[in-house]
């Protein structure tokens, strides 16, 4: 059986997000901020875990609670979303939920851009606090 993926490598460094992917429930949450220097190095195990997980044809709920991500990270998030879109088009059960602060219209702009780019029905959830 696959193990859960939990990454909180440098809790003192805010530019690394917390990744909490649960094998049993299929709930995959990424939260915090993301703008580290070696973006690909950080996200590679995340992408690999997801690919291995969906190979088992299990449902996925991908939840994003990021308050900021830089352009390099946005490329990695796009990759994750494209993987999920492909999985969905092959019959996989996929739900994507993206939380954003009510006073952060730029984050909603980014979410809408990802919806347009991927064709995924991302549920944007407005909250007062993250």
């Amino acid at each position: 059986m696959m193990e859960n993926l939990y990454l909180n490598i440098y809790p003192e460094l805010v530019y690394y997000p917390i990744v909490d992917f649960n094998y049993l429930t299929g709930e995959c949450v990424i939260s915090g901020e993301s703008y580290m220097e070696e973006t690909y190095k950080f996200y590679l195990p995340v992408i690999n875990w997801l690919k291995t997980y969906i190979a088992e044809k299990k449902p996925v709920v991908f939840t994003v609670k990021l308050t900021y991500f830089n352009t390099s990270s946005s490329r990695m998030i796009l990759e994750i979303l494209l993987i999920l879109k492909q999985y969905q088009s092959e019959g996989g059960e996929v739900k994507v939920v993206w939380f954003y602060k009510s006073n952060d219209p730029d984050m909603l702009m980014d979410i809408e851009s990802f919806i347009k780019e991927t064709g995924l029905a991302i549920e944007a959830v407005k909250v007062d606090k993250m």
Binding site: Y40, Y43, S72, S74, R75, E117
Partner: peptide, 13 residues
């Protein structure tokens, strides 16, 4: 931004 993001590789972004 979307176009360039799609075109960029995962390694060099």
């Amino acid at each position: 931004k979307s176009t360039l993001r799609h075109q960029s590789s995962l390694v060099a972004t």
